[in-house]
Structure formats: C-alpha cells, structure tokens
C-alpha cells in the first residue's frame, strides 16, 4: 500500500531543484498570480528547517526585512516555485536553526562553508 502511495505522488515530485542544505542562503523565485498576469517574486533568506518527506516536504526560509524577521514555509514540490538558487553555503551543526530567531546582529549569522573544488 505504501508503494502505491509513493507512486501516486511520484510524478509531482520535483527533481529539477538544486541540492540545498540547512544554513544555506537561498534565492527562491516564486510565481505569483495577480489577476490574469503572472510574475516572479524573489524571496531570499537562510534555510532554517526542512520538514516532512516525499510530496509533503517543506522548507522554512528566514530573512530579516526592515528589522522584522520574516519566515516563509514553502512546499518544496510546489509548482509555484519557478527556481531556487543557492547564493551561499552555510556551515552549521544542527538540523533546525531556530536559535537564529532569538539573535540579532552579528550573532544571527551563519558561517560560510568553504567548499573545495568538486572533482
């Protein structure tokens, strides 16, 4: 029965998105419909959580906008995502970066991961 459930959602799971990890700074391009016009909106922030699995998987992206923390929970398999770009790889030691919510200024930053040349 479980295999059947997977097979149902298989064709809606997106494989075109890049590999993303917790702590990365992401540029998420979202398709927004306004009346009959469609445009692409950019949301840039730190990936602080990934939840659930399969078709249900969501990401939480946090940014500080005009001094106010904003978090968006985005279903990763949503057709409303135009594309995702990774602008910075982060070096983190936990899977959920909720501690960033309580911090301001320099301590609210994530160290950059220096990635060697891929072979």
């Amino acid at each position: 029965m479980e295999q059947l459930m997977k097979a149902i959602t298989q064709d809606q799971i997106r494989n075109d998105l890049p590999q993303i990890n917790i702590g990365d700074t992401l540029k998420v391009y979202l398709k927004i419909k306004e009346g009959d016009k469609e445009r692409v909106q950019l949301f840039e922030g730190i990936l602080i959580a990934r939840k659930h699995g399969g078709i249900n998987e969501t990401i939480t992206v946090r940014r500080v906008s005009y001094g106010v923390g904003v978090e968006r929970v985005i279903p990763i398999n949503s057709p409303n995502i135009d594309r995702i770009e990774v602008s910075r790889r982060g070096k983190v030691r936990r899977a959920k970066l909720y501690y960033l919510r309580d911090r301001v200024g320099k301590s609210a930053k994530v160290k950059e991961k220096i990635v060697g040349k891929e072979q």
């Binding site: 029965m1 149902i8 959602t9 398999n77």
Partner: peptide, 8 residues
C-alpha cells in the same frame, strides 16, 4: 481505503 496524501 489506501491512505491519505496531498497533491498540488
């Protein structure tokens, strides 16, 4: 009944 899931 097989179960519940979600689709877009």
């Amino acid at each position: 009944k097989i179960g519940m899931t979600q689709i877009f």
